[in-house]
Computed example of a mutant assay.
Amino acid sequence: MTYARAGVDVSQVRKSHEALARLLESTFKTRKGRVGHPIFPIGHYAGLVDLNDGRVLSLHTDNVGTKVIIAQLMRKYDTIGIDCVAMCANDLICTGAEPISFLDYLAMAKHDRRIVNEIAVGLVEGAKQAGMAIVGGETAIVPDLLSSDPGIDLVGMAAGICRNKDLILGNKIQNGDSLIGVASSGIHSNGLTLARKILLKEYKLQERVPELGRSVGEELLEPTLIYVKPVLEAIANTQIHGLAHITGGSFGKLERILGQAKLGARIDQLPPTPPIFQLIQEKGHVTDLEMRRTFNMGVGFVLVCPDEEVTRVDRLFKRHGHPVFELGRVQKKRGVWIEDAQID
């Protein structure tokens, strides 16, 4: 089984993004010379606009994807709000920005106060972890657009702020820099379409699986970790050359920052594979390459730094309760490589 066969062809999505970005960038000239002028092309982790006072506003929007289907099937909605915040906040910090504000968009086939309240619990918890204020949002009841029982979609939009001179976009990455991976909590919010189609053929959602120590549904609903506080502390106290949130496309996401320096990376060692990914690979007969192109494989975030900073970064994240791993190094050869296979 592959992600494309499951219905998500990442390579085609990437091509669409590239074509769409070129069209959207034609609007940049509307703000030329004014507050809000974009200072970087579309395609990084966040949009960057100049505030004309030495600061930059960083903007990002994202959603929970098909993780909402698991929440629907489990009738449990109090954690997907955390995922929604995480998907936005973790991307914002990849530019060096501090997340400050969040908006949510909740679409429903029919209004259900209990579901709304449960989702809000997660949004509030996520915002507190990220240090953001939720300043508003929109709830849309669209029965003709979404199927019932109950039919929902959850989207977030977040803003961050950073001094222009403190932006971290990857252009300062150097050949030989170390790649430091930070542990994920599991599948996070990407690859759920493939995981669901494989695992739900083998197990009932609420069936306890010995390898997981809990049910498939509970495992898949484990919230995405929010890395804001340790990453901002690392930026303030160590030399960081690049930051990458490992989401859709997995380690191929590193190309977003490595490309700014016209360099590549070689990952020599991944952490021990978490049980959820072992199970997906075994039951779905998924190749190593496809797994590494689709899932985070136990690594939710990557920092790129000089060798002399590795120990300090390691101690800092462990102090925050996040295990870290030395994954590999930046190299002159372009692309992202794991065991001689190109991932991106």
Rank of each mutant, 00 (worst) to 15 (best):
G54V: 06
V49W: 02
L145N: 13
D177H: 11
A46M: 09
A97F: 11
P230K: 07
V231E: 11
G156A: 15
I152D: 01
R208G: 01
F277Y: 14
A140V: 14
H322Q: 05
Q239W: 04
L205P: 10
P41E: 12
E326R: 05
I141P: 01
F28G: 03
H245T: 02
F301Y: 15
N63I: 00
D78P: 01
C88F: 08
G321V: 04
H37A: 05
H111T: 11
E255W: 10
T2V: 01
G284R: 08
I267R: 04
G191P: 00
F40C: 08
D153Q: 13
H241Q: 08
R208I: 08
G36P: 03
Q260L: 08
Q129R: 15
G170A: 12
K204Y: 12
N237D: 06
Q206P: 00
G248Q: 01
H17N: 12
R55N: 12
V35R: 15
V231L: 10
N63A: 09
N237Q: 15
I134V: 14
I198S: 08
G186C: 12
S148G: 13
L103K: 12
A236N: 15
I141N: 11
C162S: 14
V313R: 08
C305D: 00
D177W: 04
P275Y: 01
K201Q: 12
I134W: 07
A195R: 09
S26W: 02
